[in-house]
């Protein structure tokens, strides 16, 4: 397995349960030794240099919080472990950042899963790390809390220029916030590229056209069928779907309009990350078999 993560990017690390995502994370964090090779984070091997841990923030599936301490006490404890300057101010600032100022004095044991996750993120960025490792950050959260956590991650990347390594099997989440992904299967990386490139890759492009007049659908289908460079065409009412093989979308639209067919809407359909992921998994399982 070999990959690198660029400064300031949100890197998604995808894979099914048991693929080795958390193990990779633990190896990168110097908690486990690799069977061979080295794991370098910020030009250092974390297993050999405790002081480098100051530059790294971590949020594992467990939030690293103590139920019997208050939100403020939890953050203050970690602030002192990381020797944060003016810990009181920093803790206040972060409680505000994650919207928990009013619950600062409450025991964490009484918090909801979403609140614990927010506090966990505050804890992870307390010492202003250069890189943040997140393990399934939205797992077990309701949609609203998931949205809030995603927004927090995006803010950290855009505003604080923090590099984020995101372990997840939530494909929708990864597609929304990551710039690059690696897809893991049984301990091996099967795909590694930018989301942009992965979703638009391939020789075929999905394309759909919505006609203004349903009665022209049959005529439009016949016309497009006579074209070279278009794959199988499907028709559903006034919507025609097709795969563009060697022809561009604008050529299809221009031809239809020139032939007096009214086009209401044309849309290029990119492959979703889910489709790509499933393809990669099928291919990987085929390779293994």
């Amino acid at each position: 397995m070999s990959f690198s993560v660029d400064t300031g990017e949100i890197f998604g690390y995808l894979g099914p349960n048991g693929a080795g995502k958390t193990t990779t994370l633990r190896v990168l964090l110097g908690l486990l030794s690799p069977t061979s090779g080295t794991a370098i984070v910020l030009d250092a091997d974390l297993s050999k240099d405790d002081s480098m841990r100051r530059r790294v923030g971590v949020l594992m599936e467990n939030n690293g919080l103590y139920d019997r301490l208050t939100a403020r006490e939890n953050l203050e404890y970690y602030a002192r472990l990381y020797e944060v300057n003016r810990p009181g101010n920093r803790v206040t600032e972060l409680l505000d950042f994650v919207g928990l100022t009013e619950r600062a004095g409450d025991m964490v044991g009484n918090f909801s899963t979403g609140m614990k996750r927010k506090l966990g993120i505050a804890r992870a960025i307390l010492h202003e790390p250069e890189i943040l490792f997140l393990d399934e950050p939205t797992s077990g959260l309701d949609p609203e809390a998931q949205h809030m956590v995603r927004e927090l991650i995006l803010r950290l990347s855009r505003v604080e220029s923090m590099t984020v390594f995101l372990n997840s099997h939530n494909l929708d989440e990864v597609q929304r916030i990551c710039s690059r992904v690696a897809i893991l299967h049984q301990g091996r990386i099967r795909a590694l590229d930018s989301i942009q490139h992965l979703t638009s890759a391939g020789k075929k492009t999905g394309f759909s056209i919505t006609l203004a007049d349903t009665t022209q659908a049959s005529e439009a289908e016949d016309l497009l069928s006579s074209f070279g460079g278009i794959g199988e065409i499907t028709r559903n009412g006034n919507v025609l779907g097709m795969m563009l093989v060697t022809i561009h979308a604008h050529e299809v639209v221009t031809t239809l309009v020139k032939n007096g067919i009214w086009v209401e809407e044309a849309r290029i359909q990119k492959r979703s990350l889910e489709e790509i992921y499933l393809d990669v998994m099928r291919q990987a399982e085929g390779d293994v078999a």
Partner: peptide, 14 residues
Amino acid sequence: QSGVIETLLCTPLS
């Protein structure tokens, strides 16, 4: 048991 130790092991604490 709670798993909090994993987070602590990622701090500069020896």
